[in-house]
């Protein structure tokens, strides 16, 4: 990473690996399964066992490690040495042979090409908004998707993040990041946390991150269109009258028309409140058509 923002973010994650955990929590593969929240389990169950998967920006690697428990080919890539070091320690401890870890800077197309492989499922959850050039990073990682492959892109929403930004401001100015406020805000986002390393990682990620951008649904639809990716749906839903029915079959196979601008606006205004708990985070699912060619 050669950009100023890149160095800043890399330094941040080297100091505070994310999502982080106390390695002593995971003594067996079963411990890893038990620690997974329900959406991770939904992702796992809805991806076929023979599919290849890459988790872009895997950090300390819980998700990709978990997905590798039932699959032969799961990759986790990240550009933070400290995060990958922790992930490798977990890999050795649990003997996760089908889990491949590699240091990759997703803003560098040569490093993406060096992976030398395309995947059935490309997950990039909560990563692009910390890169300094979210679209360039998106464009690069779309090269990793096989024709007919699936994509999940998780980002902070420009509307949905407003209340968290207010909390960041209050925490910094009035509450001076005191512990009571930290605990309350962390609880709000991830519930009760016993693992102190994980709690610290969360606080740093949400409240002290040196660089983040926010994005709109319209922007992501535009990215998909420019790169020949079919828009499938979002979680939470951007369909006018239906909330996301997150179920095992629905995450990857559900297909809706991209929402019109007034509907995008309406739904995103609603997200100010409804996605507040998760810091305005949403995921867009898409698919690369079988006969896909180059991007613009």
């Amino acid at each position: 990473m050669t950009t100023k923002i890149g160095n800043l973010v890399q330094g941040f994650y080297n100091k505070t690996p994310f999502p982080d955990y106390d390695l002593a929590r995971f003594n067996s593969k079963e411990d890893l399964s038990l620690a997974a929240y329900s959406f991770a389990k939904i992702l796992d169950r809805s991806i076929p066992e023979n599919a290849s998967v890459i988790d872009v920006g895997t950090g300390t690697g819980q998700l990709s490690a978990f997905l590798s428990l039932r699959r032969e080919c799961v990759w986790g890539i990240d550009f933070s040495d400290s995060s990958l070091k922790k992930a490798k320690a977990l890999q050795e401890k649990l003997g996760l042979d089908s889990w491949n870890l590699k240091k990759v800077d997703i803003l560098d197309p040569e490093q993406i090409d060096a992976i030398g492989k395309q995947f059935d499922y490309v997950l990039c959850l909560g990563v692009l908004h910390h890169t300094g050039d979210a679209y360039r990073a998106f464009k690069n990682i779309m090269k990793l998707v096989k024709p007919g492959g699936h994509v999940a892109i998780g980002l902070y929403n420009s509307y949905g993040r407003l209340l968290l930004k207010k909390r960041i401001f209050l925490a910094k100015t009035i509450f001076k990041n005191n512990n009571a406020v930290k605990d309350k805000y962390i609880r709000m986002q991830i519930g009760e946390v016993e693992d102190k390393e994980r709690a610290r990682g969360w606080w740093n990620d949400q409240y002290l991150h040196p660089h983040e951008t926010t994005h709109t649904v319209g922007e992501v639809i535009d990215w998909f269109t420019k790169n020949g990716i079919q828009f499938n749906h979002t979680v939470p839903s951007t369909s006018l009258f239906s909330e996301s029915a997150i179920d095992i079959g629905g995450v990857w196979s559900k297909v809706e028309n991209p929402p019109s601008f007034p509907v995008q606006l309406y739904k995103q205004l609603g997200w100010i409140w409804s996605t507040n708990r998760e810091g305005g985070y949403w995921i867009t699912f898409g698919r690369k058509p079988e006969n896909s060619s180059a991007s613009r």
Partner: peptide, 14 residues
Amino acid sequence: GQSSAISPFIYALF
């Protein structure tokens, strides 16, 4: 705009 009371965390996966 209300989210479903049963919607799971989607950012926190572990």
